[in-house]
């Protein structure tokens, strides 16, 4: 997953088609993140000006949602479901094993590989569930998610 580096011009191009969307702030932030992998701080002002809302409103939405991030995306993202159905088939142990193998802590920011806790991918009959760079993994194991 490679993303272009942040540029106001490119961000403006991303936002232009959203001009007539009702309630645009979240969609605008998602579009920026999809393009660049994260929401650069300059995007807050740009979205505020583009849609005529306050910067506080944009900042509020940006900091509310777990999906939105303000630091560049890692080269690899391993999300592991840590909710009840996956707990029942060992997701706590899976997280500990992946942390150990990669030498990283869950939910901390790294430039290369991040391990993120997630709460349900709807794969609860084939847990533990994980998502590696957007690909859902069923019956996840250390080997499968770090392959």
């Amino acid at each position: 997953m490679s993303h272009p580096s942040w540029s106001i011009e490119e961000a403006t191009r991303v936002l232009t088609p959203l001009k007539n969307v009702q309630g645009p702030v979240l969609i605008a932030l998602q579009a920026v993140q999809e393009r660049f992998g994260y929401v650069h701080e300059e995007a807050v002002t740009l979205i505020a000006e583009t849609f005529n809302v306050s910067r506080a409103d944009v900042h509020g939405v940006l900091t509310y949602y777990h999906d939105l991030r303000t630091s560049p995306a890692p080269t690899r993202c391993i999300q592991i479901c840590v909710a009840e159905a996956c707990q029942s088939v060992g997701s706590r142990e899976l997280v500990a094993a992946v942390e150990k193998k990669l030498g990283k802590k869950i939910d901390e920011t790294y430039a290369d590989v991040e391990i993120k806790s997630a709460y349900c991918f709807g794969n609860c009959a084939l847990g533990p569930a994980a998502m590696v760079d957007g690909e859902l993994v069923g019956r996840a194991s250390v080997e499968k998610v770090t392959a």
Binding site: C81, A83, E84, A85, C86, Y119, C120, G122, N123, C124, A125
Partner: peptide, 12 residues
């Protein structure tokens, strides 16, 4: 927004 762990009927 089927967020409950253990549910996947909407998704399916």
């Amino acid at each position: 927004d089927e967020g409950d762990s253990g549910t996947f009927a909407d998704r399916i």
